[in-house]
Write a protein that binds this DNA or RNA. Structure first.
Lengths: 240, 240
DNA sequence: GCAAAAGTGTTGTCCTTACACCCATGC
DNA sequence: GCATGGGTGTAAGGACAACACTTTTGC
């Protein structure tokens, strides 16, 4: 152990950094979507011999001089063609043995998008949407990562208006409730749910109705992000 | 861009990983403490020529085959001698120019500890506690990191019983309220604050009182982590 | 006309807030 | 005895949970 209270002479930053071990970095994207009342996630099949045929998140190496955010956006863009999509860093996973090719540290991002707003690009490796609770074994530690991201989504969707990223611009209250019920895995009271969102004042009534439904059509709403930004609470509320 | 729908033959994991660029990784610890009604953070002075004398978080390189959690715990232990302290990963920072010695990616951990429960070790570089809102310029992007961690703490302390990590095992309600007021930067109503915590049922009344105070001494309590684990809410509460 | 989901209100309970007075200790 | 903060109760308002019937559409 080093001695205490030793005056240290200034060090050169480059020399210091050169002495550090280096590690390959990747990003993995957990891309959530919503379809037919189920939460979906976009996956491929791994092309590594060890995991042949197992499902895998969308990931890639981080290029030299590339930001992690930039790398995650690139992965998303290459696969879905979408930019300006909700994308947020969730956690960095670093168990030394998590990758069979040697040590690889991965930073995981979660993304939410409307399945209908894009077409899949780069269909390599059987890129497909999978229903979240019907996914079997996965490659690497991706199952664990997916669980972390699902819990993260369950928490975030209650604190922030993220559900709207999964829906069309115009949506019915039923669709909105379906998103919450699927993600939180609960049944909610329809009347209280509607009252809740009505009282928030962030939903704009369009003059349109659902079409092609086999029952009484519901009104379509849009989410008012401007109102939300102005009114959102700066919350103080101790609650655990 | 790669062609679509090409069947890919299995790849060897090691070959693949060897082709990835590698990056030096570090961990930085934002170690929070509480003293004299102020939120404190443990900092050193940077010994890099570029940042000479500027304040810096406690960090170190991540050793080969070392987990990020392990590295963060090591940094904490080397400086404070403490293990089994609250420590949680917050975010990974990766701007290519954030370190003057070249690209360095850092994963930041936040820790909460009771200043009196430990003695500082390795006093190199003027290791000291600093009051959170009296900190000037810092080295690297550490000011920004500190702000992210402070907001993280403000949020977490309202959702989870973290405040108790900053206090002695036995504490008065006044001390507890001081922690919340300092971290959230608000004034709280004393009667309502006490009622709130009393109704939660997580505080155990010790039969002891404060001593050496210049006014009516308050009762001392302990936090009942067992009760908390059993009763904590599995919250469904949409609120934004 | 039947099935299926939309739309709507009230009541009780609980939580939160605002607010004022007496009490115990050190000096 | 005075200064300092500890300890307590109540009333009003707001949010949430529980709950049932009528309406509109497609078939």
């Amino acid at each position: 152990m080093a001695a205490n209270n030793i005056a240290v002479s200034p060090r050169d930053a480059i020399e210091l950094v050169v002495s550090y071990p280096t590690v390959p970095l990747t990003v993995d994207c957990v891309i959530f979507g919503f379809h037919e009342n189920s939460l979906k996630v976009l996956l491929i099949k791994s092309d590594l011999t060890k995991y042949e045929g197992k499902l895998s998140l969308l990931g890639d190496k981080v290029n030299a001089d590339e930001d992690l955010d930039t790398a995650a956006n690139r992965v998303l863009r290459q696969r879905t063609g979408m930019t300006d999509v909700f994308l947020e860093q969730v956690h960095t996973f670093s168990k030394p043995d998590r990758h069979p090719g040697g040590r690889v540290v991965t930073t995981v991002y979660a993304s939410l998008l409307n399945i209908k707003h894009h077409q899949l690009l780069l269909h390599d490796n059987e890129l497909k949407w999978h229903t979240i609770n019907q996914i079997g074994e996965m490659a690497f530690d991706h199952k664990q990562i997916l669980e972390v991201c699902t819990r993260w989504l369950q928490k975030r969707i209650q604190e922030q208006p993220l559900a709207f990223n999964l829906l069309p611009v115009k949506f019915s209250l039923r669709q909105l409730q379906n998103v919450y019920e699927a993600i939180l895995d609960v049944k909610l009271d329809r009347r209280n749910f509607r009252k809740k969102f009505a009282s928030m004042g962030f939903l704009n009534d369009t003059d349109e109705m659902e079409t092609h439904v086999t029952h009484r059509p519901g009104k379509l709403y849009t989410f008012d992000f401007v109102q939300y930004q102005q009114k959102k609470k700066n919350f103080i509320g101790i609650d655990f």
